[in-house]
């Protein structure tokens, strides 16, 4: 069979990324221009700043990817792009760039949902088997996604307020840790013990998530200590926060496993890089559900990149998904359709 090459562009947040993917599983080129140092100075991503850097980087990142692959846009079967969700001004840059390539080289345009990308990033390391349960955890998302088949998505549960990554970043901030807070919370939690009791997240639907109450509980804990002139170890508070947050996550995941009996459960998104969460799944969950294959993506697949959009884009392309030239950024794009 003829090989399929896809050039993919991802610009939904603060990484300008372009990748070239062969046959939905082989990375031919994968270039990411990260803005993290700029946003560190501001303590978070400022959307307008992110958009400005995207427009500055975009043509260079495309050229780098083609050079690394030693290929031309003419060699591609299609152009895939993250249409959403994400920051609208950032998405616009990637979408216009993708449309330009599709137009100038007469190639099909394939819009991709960012979360489908995170899920399909796992196909770079293993063959996916369906039905499948994906636990998507990132700065903008906390979702349980059920995939009955290759290109079908059903959202079983989602966060009612903060995303797990967002909550972690906020906890990091109140503990005086650098940006991105969640990463540093994980770092210091390794030297702490989960000895404090924090509010357990509750939701109406048993597969939904909520993290704003837990975040407030951390704030209240710190206030109480200050008021009573008591000291606490930030390491212990970080460990307690992670324990409570991830137990809430996995409690929902366990329920979903029992209700849907998938062959695989995979972790996806930026928070998939969290060492505590990885350990809980690869050790505790794997032991409790020996009939399920648990997939933990390598750290390189967790952060935003275009390789994942290229893999998902290839599957979408094979399933006949096409965007027309009126395609525009969709910051609130839905995964289910």
């Amino acid at each position: 069979m003829k090989d399929t090459y896809i050039l993919a562009i991802e610009s939904s947040c603060d990484e300008t990324a372009v990748a070239i993917i062969k046959n939905a599983k082989e990375i031919v080129a994968n270039v990411v221009a990260t803005q993290i140092d700029v946003h560190k100075d501001f303590g978070g991503v400022i959307p307008e700043v992110a958009s400005r850097i995207h427009v500055e980087n975009i043509s260079m990142v495309i050229e780098e990817a083609l050079k690394k692959a030693n290929m031309d846009v003419a060699d591609m079967d299609a152009i895939a792009v993250t249409q959403g969700p994400g920051l609208v001004g950032s998405l616009h840059v990637g979408v216009q760039a993708a449309k330009t390539l599709a137009w100038a080289y007469d190639k099909p345009l394939v819009p991709v949902h960012h979360i489908a990308g995170h899920i399909y990033a796992n196909q770079l390391i293993t063959e996916l088997a369906f039905p499948l349960l994906a636990l998507v955890v990132s700065g903008g998302h906390t979702e349980l996604v059920y995939m009955k088949d290759e290109w079908s998505f059903e959202i079983l549960g989602t966060t009612q307020d903060d995303a797990i990554g967002e909550a972690g970043d906020k906890v990091g901030r109140v503990l005086g840790l650098p940006y991105p807070g969640g990463v540093y919370v994980d770092k210091i939690a390794k030297d702490g013990k989960a000895i404090y009791t924090l509010a357990k997240p509750k939701t109406e639907n048993e597969l939904d998530f909520s993290f704003s109450g837990l975040k407030s509980s951390v704030l209240q804990f710190i206030d109480r200590c200050k008021r009573k002139n008591e000291t606490f170890l930030p390491e212990d508070l970080a460990a307690s926060y992670q324990e409570t947050a991830f137990e809430a996550l996995l409690e929902r995941a366990r329920k979903a496993l029992e209700l849907y009996h998938p062959k695989q459960m995979l972790l996806a998104g930026g928070v998939a890089a969290n060492s505590c969460l990885r350990k809980k799944i690869s050790e505790d969950m794997a032991k409790a559900y020996p009939e399920v294959t648990f997939i933990i993506p390598p750290l390189s697949c967790c952060t935003d990149n275009a390789a994942m959009i290229g893999v998902a884009g290839t599957i979408a392309y094979q399933h006949g998904e096409r965007g027309d030239f009126a395609l525009t950024a969709d910051p609130g794009m839905e995964l289910e359709r």
Binding site: E48, S51, V55, I58, S59, M60, I62, E63, V73, V88, G89, H92, V93, Q96, A97, K99, T100, L101, A104
Partner: peptide, 19 residues
């Protein structure tokens, strides 16, 4: 407008560098 000025410029940057 911030977004407006980026639209044509993105198209032009990608088109001119590739072609």
């Amino acid at each position: 407008s911030y977004t407006g000025v980026r639209i044509a410029m993105t198209v032009a940057k990608v088109l001119c560098t590739r072609k």
